[in-house]
């Protein structure tokens, strides 16, 4: 049974697209059939982060409006062949997304994939609500910073009221992914600690992604972080998060940025 996951946050720039790409690649490396879908119509970037920007022919709007078949619009990843990307349109706006059209595309994706990962646009408008509409699971991406946590709280409220699951009276599964975490600063009281954020948002923790230069390097290269350097601290954190997403119990560690043989020895327990 396919699972539809929305990666959302309210606030922009917290790492939704980076996380969507990393989670998509990590799931696909485990042999799962994965589609990553960019819902950020007009400001698409998932194609760029995945290194597929020159291969886009058709997009989500073309499929929603029936101008192209889903199979024509999906771009097969060159690194992992069980991974596909459905890009957003760059020239249209979010009004071109119809509710019925999105519903039809998601249903068709469900028949062909194990996981459908929807990259939500920032904000709480139409694009964001349509991206979360059909989700079974929500990954709320937040930075340990006041404005991001406040916006995440707002998004959690929308997930509990505007999704189809919520409207049917069912519970949507929600997970927190804390990104750009600096455990040194958190320990020194300079940054909200993991437990501070969990105390406020009250949803289970999927993973802690440490602040790392590797993330920018990966997007520069158009290689999702898990593919560009699988042993880097953020890549290991994403791989652990994905194991938790699949239901495994994995101790909550914050991989350190140290590389080499000692990296695993220096893994720190979550603060």
């Amino acid at each position: 049974m396919a699972k539809v996951v929305v990666v959302t946050s309210g606030k922009g720039g917290v790492g939704k697209t980076t996380s969507t790409a990393a989670i998509g690649v990590a799931l696909a490396l485990g042999g799962e059939k994965v589609a990553v879908v960019d819902f950020d119509v007009g400001l698409r970037n998932l194609d760029l982060v995945m290194g597929a920007e020159r291969r886009v022919v058709y997009d989500l709007i073309d499929v929603v409006q029936g101008n192209a078949k889903l199979s024509q619009a999906l771009i097969r990843d060159k690194r992992v062949d069980t991974l596909s990307l459905l890009p957003a349109s760059q020239t249209r706006d979010k009004d071109a997304l119809s509710e019925e059209g999105v519903s039809r595309v998601i249903d068709e994706l469900r028949q062909n994939f194990d996981w459908i990962i929807c990259d939500s646009p920032a904000g709480i408008e139409r694009g964001a609500t349509l991206a979360m509409r059909h989700a079974d699971i929500a990954i709320v991406v937040a930075n340990p910073e006041v404005s991001s946590v406040r916006d995440s709280d707002r998004i959690i409220g929308l997930l509990d009221s505007k999704t189809r699951k919520a409207e049917k009276g069912e519970r949507i599964e929600k997970h927190l992914l804390l990104t750009r975490y600096d455990s040194g600063r958190a320990k020194r009281g300079e940054m909200l600690r993991t437990e501070d954020v969990l105390d406020i948002l009250s949803i289970p923790l999927l993973g802690i992604i440490p602040e790392s230069q590797e993330v920018l390097r990966a997007s520069n290269l158009g290689q999702p972080i898990v593919a560009s350097n699988a042993t880097s601290a953020p890549a290991r954190a994403y791989l652990d998060a994905v194991r938790r997403l699949k239901g495994e119990t994995v101790a909550m560690m914050i991989p350190s940025n140290r590389t080499g043989v000692f990296a695993k020895l220096f893994r720190q327990r979550a603060a």
Binding site: V149, R150, R188, G189, E190, L192, R193, D196, D199, I200
Partner: peptide, 16 residues
């Protein structure tokens, strides 16, 4: 300066 994170936590609790 060391104490800014607890302030952030408290402000968020009240605001939310």
């Amino acid at each position: 300066r060391r104490g800014s994170a607890p302030v952030a936590h408290q402000r968020l609790q009240i605001l939310l």
